[in-house]
Design a binder for these strands. Structure first.
Lengths: 193, 193
DNA sequence: CGTCTATTTGAATGTACTCAAAAGCGGTGG
DNA sequence: CCACCGCTTTTGAGTACATTCAAATAGACG
């Protein structure tokens, strides 16, 4: 089961006793998502946040011209959700889609609040996770404002070498903030070296 | 004094009793920074994180060509620091500079850890702050990958109308991820409407 | 008043996009 | 097993967005 992966992840930041572990397990649910299925679409109420135990997902938005822009990919051992919608319990603005057959653990907003109250250590756990996410996003912002698309592409290949086998060029382009056509041109140029 | 502003900010997320308040106050220090003075430079050890009670700061990096790229501005009622350096206690990679005569409250890394242990509510406080920061950064990323410079400029003017009076065009450009020359051209174009 | 930095302006160039069409690739059904 | 369909990727030509370099102008500060 995927619960070990979650407990392992939690255990890297806080230590739980048996009762706390049992309580966490009582709040979570397992869910399978098929490729191209959605856990969330814009306008939906966002009840859950998700921890991926297997597979790969993407969270993205569509602009007024119908173009997709990918906020992030999520793979095993990562949390993913439409955080703005989840936190403020307002209608979702993102799509949350499985790119592979995916297994997630979900926890409901109200259960997470209960968890914070009964096991305050989880405040620490998520504080650390959000801190780390902040740092990662910070780096992406600095890259977006200071590097060309080519530099950003080379950087992500270096940082996540496995990602290229897993996602399409179209999605890579939607993550980098360029068109698929331009990414194709970059690759041709880079290949000729 | 600026301590009220900090206590007020904290009070919007958690409630402290007298003893906890006194403990927090025992850990903080007040500091004044003159315009164009630095609280941190690349290579420095980053001992503190800062809460601004008056004034305005910027945190930025220089690339290999000497160009500055601004990660964020901080004004009254905001926390600011080189978070990667502060968290991992590795050498700073950012400049932290006052753009106006500025007053900050600083707290040391080890004191913050003590605070987490003695008053775990602060885990919650910073969890919420980092969550909100995550959402704000997320929006900036989505804009960077989906909007033109003109659209981003108009958006920030709308979101922070006061900012334009406070910071130079050069800094605005370094935040948007464009050259000052191009921002000037955009403004001319927008003015002629 | 003079110096230093920020902003503006213009021309040339590079980066990235649009539109259109062709080629490749995977899945599905006959 | 092959033919077809839909979607992704490639290619090319033309255009728009953004930068560079250089020089002029405007503002801020001592």
């Amino acid at each position: 089961m995927g619960a070990e992966l979650l407990l392992d992840n939690v255990g890297r930041h806080i230590s739980l006793n048996e009762e706390e572990t049992a309580y966490l397990l009582s709040l979570i649910e397992f869910k399978n998502v098929e490729r191209k299925q959605y856990l969330l679409k814009p306008g939906n109420h966002c009840h859950h946040t998700y921890f991926i135990t297997k597979g790969c997902m993407r969270i993205y938005q569509c602009d007024s011209n119908g173009f997709e822009h990918i906020a992030m990919f999520g793979i095993e051992d990562w949390w993913i959700s439409d955080l703005p919608a989840f936190l403020t319990q307002t209608p979702a603005t993102h799509y949350l889609e499985a790119l592979e057959p995916t297994e997630v653990i979900q926890i409901e907003k109200s259960d997470l609040e209960k968890l914070y109250l009964r096991v305050p250590k989880f405040e620490r756990y998520f504080r650390i996770l959000h801190q780390n996410a902040f740092v990662a996003q910070h780096q992406r912002i600095m890259q977006n404002i200071s590097m060309t698309a080519e530099e950003r592409y080379l950087f992500i290949l270096k940082k996540y070498p496995a990602l290229e086998q897993r996602i399409s060029q179209k999605h890579m382009a939607a993550f980098l903030g360029i068109t698929p056509v331009f990414l194709s041109m970059l690759r041709r140029k880079l290949a000729g070296k």
